[in-house]
Design a binder for these strands. Structure first.
Lengths: 340, 340
DNA sequence: AATCCAAATGTAAGCGCTTACACAGCAAAG
DNA sequence: CTTTGCTGTGTAAGCGCTTACATTTGGATT
């Protein structure tokens, strides 16, 4: 195999210096049109493609953005990440993905690996992590953007989990629910999950009820876990409304309710969060919170690209969310009457 | 910001040459224990982390594997890709992901981009693509592995889409179905989708029926498209069985059947393929084909890692699949007096 | 025509690492 | 006490590119 042509090969053949060829490729406006055309022609003839490792070493830029997400298997991340990646591609960046499996130590290791590889920027999910990690990132001087959760305290793009959930919960309470159960993803190290619970608490308090009366079940992300948590909730609290921290847990709860012969929303209302495709496929459709994942992914890519160019870290962005009404939420049955 | 320590810094501080430090890091057995310990201690003290770009340039190895998948949004790829990535990480490789949106030209561009970046190996989905691409990859001498579809003709790991679908279809035919409709993903450039259809045809022929009688609707991957295709199918063919090329299309068909007041599996049976989480969440659960995604992802990673080490491209692997019975498939109703 | 000054191009010094090759040190063999 | 043959280390030449700085070029100005 003949090894790939190098910059020098192009330079020799075109009768210019390597610097000129490099300039043609990187800042064409610094080269006069005639020369540029001659060079580009040679580039084409030779089928020259720059060696990114060499370019990265010399320019101290890898044209690579890293992202550490909990897992690609979670549909919540897939859509946003896809949009993120597409947008990066438009500007010639590639995406290096790593996953943490929701484990802080693994996440930290992955972040370090990404930095070692010279990622020009890093996308992280949520704010909750060891301050030392932020410190490390700062001393390494690598741009970081937090996504999937907005917070005014740190450059981030996402939505207000707390407010979104509060809106949903308030609405449900107005319908008359007072015995409320909650199924949430593990809250430790997950500010998004915590924010959602805070939103519920706020809504409950605002309605003059006691947040301490909420029955809360914490369990890991999976349909089966959602179903089992639903069972436990029905035993300990018999809520008329089960608010779930995400659609997958809600789908599990909904399924288990059906298996137990409980009509939804007749005997028990169930709500989700995220509005993934699944939400519209279960019967009845889930009442959930719609989140602009694609928009977030794209905006995140744009911000990060800007940051790699040294643009001043602009303000973060808090994207709007909406409650999306399916058929799993209704007013609670009135005990003595034949509610409908 | 103090710039990161280099190999030379470590060498000076430890009183050895850069070559020795490099050897400590890359092939510790070539360095005597005493020296090695001294060096590693210094590495720790300085918090030294190698610069991957420089390493890649000098060693002509990036420790990076690239993958081009149609889209991360499709749950079918998410799980396998996650497993792939995890396994790569165990061996110090990172994953560069690109997506093609099911477009051949985009895919080709992404493959070239991955090669330009010096990916040590590349994972591709399915076999269907311009021979020139394979030619290019061969001349570039970069290891390639095809996944999600096994074929004896090219190094690949996956399953036998044709056989799996044939098994499912045969079973359905044995139940008594003879008016069969098919909803498939676009077959052009997608050997997996074509293989599945071939499987159905084979089963139909084997039962003494005419494959030409199959009503086939081709549509892009989405719930809504599945639903609409279902409508068209019911108008043109009124099948008693609708075989769908994947679970998402099946979920759409199932939902539309419900909306049209058609009982499943009473009036019409529906089957899927892939057995994604969704399959167990719709009501009734989907009868579908179970595929070992995680296992495939892991095995793919192992094969590719071996190939980057120059190991001879072993044989590919065809993983087993199983039909998974849900409640959407049953014997057809015995025709009543009147239809409509 | 002589002078000046941008703009265009060339020169060459790295970027941080790997690795072929040279060399030193030392035990066993002669 | 040499020689031989290892093994462990050091030397230094790249890997292919970018870019600061030097040099040339060619108009515009005088």
């Amino acid at each position: 195999m003949v090894s790939a042509p190098t910059l020098e090969d192009v330079a020799k053949r075109a009768g210019v210096s390597t610097a000129t060829v490099s300039r043609c490729l990187n800042s064409p406006d610094k080269v006069v049109a005639k020369t540029r055309e001659k060079v580009m022609k040679t580039v084409r003839e030779l089928g020259y493609a720059p060696n990114f490792s060499a370019r990265a070493l010399a320019a101290r830029r890898t044209q690579t953005i890293g992202a550490v997400i909990p897992t690609m298997e979670n549909a919540i991340f897939a859509q946003g990440l896809q949009a993120f990646q597409e947008r990066l591609g438009e500007d010639g960046f590639m995406l290096l993905v790593a996953s943490s499996s929701y484990d802080r130590d693994i996440e930290e290791a992955q972040i370090r690996a990404l930095v070692a590889r010279g990622a020009d920027g890093i996308l992280l999910i949520g704010h909750d992590r060891d301050p030392a990690v932020y410190q490390f990132l700062r001393t390494q001087n690598v741009p970081v953007l937090i996504a999937w959760a907005y917070s005014p305290e740190r450059l981030s793009i996402g939505f207000d989990n707390r407010a979104a959930m509060e809106a949903l919960a308030s609405h449900a309470i107005e319908l008359g629910h007072s015995r409320i159960g909650v199924i949430t993803a593990p809250t430790e190290g997950n500010d998004r999950a915590r924010g959602r619970i805070e939103g519920i608490r706020a809504a409950v308090s605002a309605a003059g009820m006691n947040p301490e009366d909420l029955a809360i079940e914490e369990t890991e992300y999976s349909v089966l876990n959602g179903a089992d948590a639903f069972d436990r909730l029905m035993v300990v609290a018999r809520p008329s409304l089960v608010i779930c921290g995400n659609d997958v847990l809600a789908a599990g709860a909904l399924r288990r309710a059906g298996e137990r012969g409980l009509s939804v929303p007749g005997e028990v209302s169930i709500t989700g969060f995220d509005d993934i495709e699944l939400a519209r496929l279960v019967t009845p459709k889930l009442t959930t919170v719609r989140v602009p994942h694609r928009q977030m992914g794209e905006a995140a890519a744009e911000m990060l690209i800007g940051m790699t160019r040294g643009e001043t870290p602009q303000e973060g962005r808090c994207l709007p969310t909406w409650t999306r009404f399916g058929g799993t939420l209704a007013a609670p049955m009135v005990p003595r009457r034949k509610g409908r």
